[in-house]
Design a protein around this nucleic acid. Structure first.
Lengths: 217, 217
DNA sequence: GGTAAAATACACAGAATAGTGTATTGTCCC
DNA sequence: GGGACAATACACTATTCTGTGTATTTTACC
């Protein structure tokens, strides 16, 4: 690992240019910063991170094309020594855990200022972990958890189930979904029921609200 | 109105500090910028805008305590000469129209870079309007519309209807809602049907998605 | 006092969903 | 090869929604 004393090359990944531009400007003032790259979606972030000489990635979680979680996994798979700080709008326990599980070294909230960003950057470059106090205090975060899901005692949704949820949210009936996915109506119905049972929800309306709150749509 | 040649005092309102910090840094490089203030919610933005000598407010739409729309209205009511640029994550036609109706002078998306921010700032300070090309091209925006609703040919939801929507999103059935609101089941059902008809939605699941997207929950 | 809109209420038929339970296949991993 | 899980499929009943109407009573505004 590079020492913190030599210039640190940074990749900023966020679909909102105003934010990448803003963070760039914040970082440019620091003497220890080397080259700054920016990416506007997860896929671009992975490409740049693998192709260029990057020391630390500041990664937004919600991005088009490929989300931050997936991007973190791929980067860490190829270049585990690259440090990654996840940045998000909300501090949802399950999201935080998933990001850490995926290999993120730090996790900060967008409502924390530049001072904290720099603190986080310093820590992760030294090989430490950094999590915003707001997040680690309020939420039950297990840094060493093997199984992310166990944290909340919830059974995870399967990919198929999430697919079904999206159709439900779009207002499709079981019949329509069955047609689109070449399934029998009863199968779709079973998925729907299993989903409601897993999430302990009463009906599809509540499910869509849950999905919206958990960024499943 | 002040000329664009003298220092322009800016207020940046956004609940995410990283963004206010970032925009500050972007603006600080410009010679024409005077004092920069920041606010982290709508209420704070209104207070600062009314108390300080502000020429232009860069206002995020989604903020806690008081949202951007309300803040724009209040500022324009007291100090109509203060220019306001709305900044948002998504480019939703109805939101854009509401902001313009409320008095915003510009509307840009967070995924547009600093160049566009500066262009917008220049334009609104000269008394012109500025709307991101992405937004004005893709969406049908009427700058001179009196009635915002008419833009999309949509009938507005009544307060009672919005109340019903919230209960639906929480997974309550017509019966339960009727009990809670001391109504007959058929009345709740009528409201539900009227809502679906107004919004041209097929079922409650789609309604909840709509509600989530339009920040009704 | 008239008009418009909102909130309330009902009928009736057909469609869709929720609750509970069972069962078969395939796949991945140890 | 056995265990766990995902995906598929079905039965049966009860409840809830959806679609298409109609109609009365407030409330708000001109």
């Amino acid at each position: 690992m590079k020492s913190y004393q030599v210039p640190v090359n940074i990749l900023i990944a966020d679909d909102h240019r105003l934010i990448t531009d803003g963070i760039s400007k914040i970082l440019e003032e620091e003497k220890i910063i080397g080259k700054i790259h920016t990416a506007n979606d997860g896929s671009e972030a992975v490409n740049i991170a693998l192709a260029e000489d990057i020391d630390c990635v500041i990664m937004d979680i919600n991005m088009p094309v490929m989300n931050g979680l997936e991007a973190v996994k791929r980067i860490k798979q190829e270049k585990p020594y690259v440090k990654i700080i996840a940045v998000s709008m909300h501090s949802d326990a399950s999201v935080v855990n998933k990001m850490l599980k995926a290999g993120a070294d730090g996790y900060i909230n967008k409502d924390t200022g530049k001072t904290e960003l720099l603190t986080a950057l310093g820590k992760v470059m030294r090989g430490e972990k950094y999590i915003s106090p707001e997040i680690s205090n309020n939420l039950f975060v297990h840094l060493n958890d093997r199984n992310v899901q166990s944290t909340e005692g919830e059974k995870p949704l399967t990919p198929r189930e999430i697919e079904i949820i999206r159709y439900i949210a779009d207002g499709h009936t079981n019949q329509e979904i069955a047609q689109k996915l070449f399934l029998s109506v009863v199968t779709v119905d079973t998925h729907r029921k299993n989903i409601l049972a897993k999430l302990q929800l009463k009906n599809s309306a509540a499910l869509v609200k849950y999905a919206a709150e958990h960024k499943l749509l």
